[in-house]
């Protein structure tokens, strides 16, 4: 503190309330007008909507951190030591979202293949592990060959679609 007089800082607070309220309203307004709730049949392109909403949120975040949390009046070292590390998240966001997108694409590809029925593919219960390793290994090997023949048949069990079916019952 000490940068502003008491009366001035009271004004800043009032201004903060107004700014945050107006930006929030603007965000909601963009969301509603963009999807045709306000003017029938009028839509905004999604990138304009999302771009506007994200930048307004970032502005709100900036305002809260800089004015309410008083970051504006802290020494630059403290500001950097708190804000710079958050930049590490940028690459995380890019990498994680790319991943999410590629799971989406792979799932879509998988759904294009014919759906095999579930029965008959995984019909054997996983045999209980006995202490004699020999037995266990033999059973495992059997299981493995069974699985591989199934796969070469192209009769792959499509878990995605089957489990989706189970969900809807």
């Amino acid at each position: 503190m000490g940068h502003l007089s008491y009366e001035e800082s009271k004004k800043v607070v009032l201004r903060g309330l107004l700014i945050l309220a107006i930006v929030t309203l603007l965000e909601v307004f963009v969301a509603l007008i963009g999807k045709g709730y306000i003017i029938n049949g009028f839509h905004l392109p999604i990138w304009i909507m999302y771009g506007a909403m994200i930048s307004m949120s970032l502005y709100k975040a900036y305002f809260i951190v800089y004015y309410f949390m008083h970051m504006k009046y802290e020494v630059p070292g403290l500001v950097k030591s708190v804000l710079l590390p958050t930049m590490l998240l940028l690459w995380a966001v890019i990498a994680f979202f790319t991943e999410g997108r590629s799971w989406h694409d792979w799932r879509a590809q998988k759904n294009d293949r014919p759906i095999a029925s579930l029965t008959g593919v995984v019909n054997e219960k996983e045999s209980k592990m006995e202490t004699k390793h020999g037995q266990v290994e033999e059973q495992k090997n059997e299981q493995m060959t069974k699985d591989s023949t199934l796969q070469t048949d192209g009769n792959t069990h499509d878990e995605e679609s089957t489990s989706e079916e189970t969900q809807h019952h």
Binding site: W103, K125, E159, S163
Partner: peptide, 26 residues
């Protein structure tokens, strides 16, 4: 997602074990 236990499909879909791996290794 897509989990089978004892030949039964579990009603658990939509997630990804790789998500855990990403978070864990972060």
């Amino acid at each position: 997602s897509d989990i089978f236990v004892n030949g039964m499909a579990l009603d658990r879909i939509g997630g990804s074990p790789i998500l855990y791996q990403h978070i864990f290794w972060f």
